[in-house]
Design a protein around this nucleic acid. Structure first.
Length: 492
RNA sequence: GCCCCCAUCGUCUAGUGGCCUAGGACAUCGCCCUCUCACGGCGAAGACAGGGGUUCAAAUCCCCUUGGGGGUACCA
């Protein structure tokens, strides 16, 4: 019987970032490994930046990655609501409890005043912290401030001595000096909303979260939160701060490094299994020889003990390679299913695919499978199998179809194909070999022109496979079309 | 400025005092396969940031320096 309860708590201010996805994944893996509960909580207390659309984007992204939550939006449990914006009463209740216990107070300092004092502290070489001047305001002083039109915030009265220790599952013991590192931070903003550091504690405590697994960037905030837990008499959860994900230049991964949103990866045709496998390896490793992990395997082997301490650079090339690995593992039927939307979107396949067309597509995909890195690549690689007025790549035509014997070779192949009983290697190769002797060329000199004639480019599956798939009628027509084009362009 | 975290090939990492002349994967390069491109196979190159300790023995423990990252908000 497990009491593991973890949560992923994104704030809906934009797309789900791969860093967030990795955090969600580690939480999910930890929960699944221990047979615990994975909670999804939406941290939308920043009314100015949070949107409902962004929430949906995050939900969709998690669904794509198949990270299902046990409690959260659409899955009400015993600890809801799961949107912070709907938990205001709770935050107010605990804030006033803190006030009652003398552990919180109203502060009337303005942002400008605060900022000025901060600058002075920096100049003096001190650590920046609230100086506590509103700690013991009299009723008269408060009234005077209110009369000036100042709207107070609520600050937490932090400990004035000692140290706060974070016992972290991946970092070990981290000690923070209370005097210089934990100041009287704001727990309720003047707009009546709680701050992150306060809401997160109330929520995690009330939702009975046992392990807080989150990004390294939260480590510095942890002592503040621990003091809240203790002031409120809550049991502190176990913490695990996982390393950040960086861009190639070692700075925090962000949009300027290219695609970073999960939605973008989905649109580019990354398989969920590949994304999950790759993300799992960013900051976690099992042993020296394994890089490909199925999801059940990941669940079985994942542990926080093996989470790395150092930040990881996001290597898109490795992700692409891995995606290729997963594409190659797909059955043809599965490959067809994932490729279908991309082909339909680009007009290669109609909304309703006939059984004949599907059978043809299955054969095309069989040839393309080892050549795909992204599912989206299928459109570019398969187009000439579906489009008869494919374009010729000028530089390729120039390079391959302008040799003196081109016309003869194409005519020769045209004749050979026309007479062939079947367009496969067995029937065609002997014929082609005759051409080799006749023109004094090598197989490549014969095949490359055919390839360009049939596909418009110099890269394709094996030529006999292309010939067979296209069929006699199209092959003949395409050779004729190419000859016409060459004459028209005066390249012969 | 102050505080915290981190430090093995270009990248992700294995390594928890002797098994390390440091292993794997991606990327790179070469060869093989071959009609092109992939796939696949074989091989090469490539790292313990620097300096002090501790120890018979250090990539592994301690300290300093350097470098990188994060926090320091009425953002989360």
């Amino acid at each position: 019987m497990s009491t593991v309860r973890v949560r992923f708590a994104p704030s809906p201010t934009g797309d789900l970032h791969v860093g967030g996805a990795r955090t969600a994944l580690f939480n999910w893996l930890f929960a699944r490994h221990h047979g615990g509960t994975f909670v999804l909580r939406i941290e939308d207390t920043d009314a100015a930046r949070s949107t409902e659309a962004a929430t949906q984007v995050i939900l969709d992204a998690l669904e794509y990655l198949k990270l299902d939550w046990d409690e959260g939006p659409g899955k009400e449990g015993d600890f809801g609501p799961y949107y912070q914006s709907r938990r205001l009463d709770l935050y107010k209740k605990y804030a006033s409890e803190l006030m009652g216990r003398g552990r919180a107070y109203h502060c009337y300092c303005t942002p400008e005043e605060l900022d000025q004092r901060r600058q002075e502290q920096i100049k003096a070489g001190e650590s920046t912290r609230y100086d506590g001047r509103c700690r013991n305001l009299t009723a008269e002083e408060k009234q005077a401030f209110a009369a000036e039109g100042r709207v107070p915030v609520i600050r937490f009265k932090s400990l004035e001595e000692g140290a706060t220790v974070v016992e972290d599952l991946v970092r070990g013991t981290v000690t923070f000096d209370n005097v210089t590192q934990v100041d009287d931070f704001v727990i309720f903003k003047s707009d009546g909303m709680p701050t992150y550091n306060f809401a997160v504690v109330v929520d995690d405590a009330l939702m009975k979260i046992s392990h807080v697994i989150r990004g390294d960037d939260h480590l510095s905030n942890t002592p503040k939160q621990i003091q809240i837990y203790e002031a409120l008499g809550f049991k502190t959860p176990t913490f695990a701060h996982i390393p950040m994900i960086l861009g190639p230049d070692k700075s925090l991964l962000s949009k300027r490094h290219g695609a970073t949103s999960v939605t973008q990866f989905y649109d580019d045709g990354y398989l969920a299994e590949a994304m999950v496998n790759y993300l799992a390896l960013l900051g976690w490793g099992y042993d020296d020889s394994q890089t490909i992990f199925s999801i059940p395997d990941l669940i079985a082997k994942f542990s926080l003990e093996r989470v790395s301490k150092n930040p990881a650079v996001f290597d898109k090339q490795k992700l692409e390679w891995m995606n290729g690995v997963y594409i190659r593992e797909l059955s043809l039927e599965e490959l067809y299913e994932v490729c279908l939307p991309f082909c339909q979107k680009e007009g290669l396949l109609p909304a309703e695919v006939s059984p004949e067309l599907k059978a043809y597509t299955l054969k095309v995909l069989e040839q393309l499978q080892s050549r795909l890195k992204l599912v989206a690549d299928v459109v570019a690689l398969a187009s000439y199998f579906y489009i008869d007025d494919y374009e010729y790549k000028p530089e390729i035509v120039q390079k391959i179809l302008t040799k003196p014997q081109t016309e003869d070779i194409l005519n020769f192949v045209h004749a050979a194909v026309k007479d062939a009983a079947k367009l496969d290697e067995e029937h065609l190769k002997p014929q082609f070999q005759l051409g080799l002797e006749k023109y004094g060329i090598k197989m490549g000199d014969l095949i490359q022109p055919i390839r360009v004639a049939l596909t418009g480019t110099n890269v394709s599956p094996g030529i006999y496979d292309v010939l067979e798939l296209l069929g006699k009628e199209k092959v003949l027509a395409r050779i004729e079309r190419t000859l016409d084009m060459l004459k028209k362009e005066e390249l012969l």
